[in-house]
Amino acid sequence: MSSLFLFLSFVALLSALGVVLAKNPVHSVLFLILTFFTLSGHYLLLNAQFLAAVNIIVYAGAIMVLFLFVIMFLNLNEDTEPHKPALAKFAAAIAGGSLLLILVAAMRDIQPEGYNATSFDSQIGMVDKLGLVLFQQYALPFELASILLLAAMVGSVMLGKRETGERNF
């Protein structure tokens, strides 16, 4: 199990680096898909089958298809890549560096606790358990999140609507 974890983490880090370092944006997207796969693998190791499957369906299967879709249409390549000013690069480095600092500082105080094999609930990540928790304990946040998604959906339908007099063909 531990070696599987190490392997998944290795691939996750490597592909996450690939997202940033790849010159070709399509390669970046493909590396990002690989990263999502390794994250799903981690969910599986944590006994969260539902989360793993949904991560694949929603992120790898739908959102990344749209990413790829848009990037293929943009026809980006090294020739058309805009050269960013030095100030922007400097600001980005500062912002990213401070985020890294905060993350590391937050994790510094964590004391890893092993789990208790006798009291550990192996069903914790299964669909029915997750559903019960979502609809009983976290019913209000769940509904609020769904209203947020509905608002986004209505907004996108409004944006995509044909205006009066507009013809597509």
Binding site: L30, Q49, V54, I57, A60, A62, L68, M126
Partner: peptide, 25 residues
């Protein structure tokens, strides 16, 4: 046998389009 079998099939179907997209691009 996994207890999210239906989601697994659904996920694989949704990944199937990558082969076509990548090849076409």
């Amino acid at each position: 046998e996994i207890n999210v079998g239906m989601l697994y099939v659904f996920g694989m179907v949704s990944l199937g389009v990558y082969g076509i997209m990548i090849g076409g691009w």
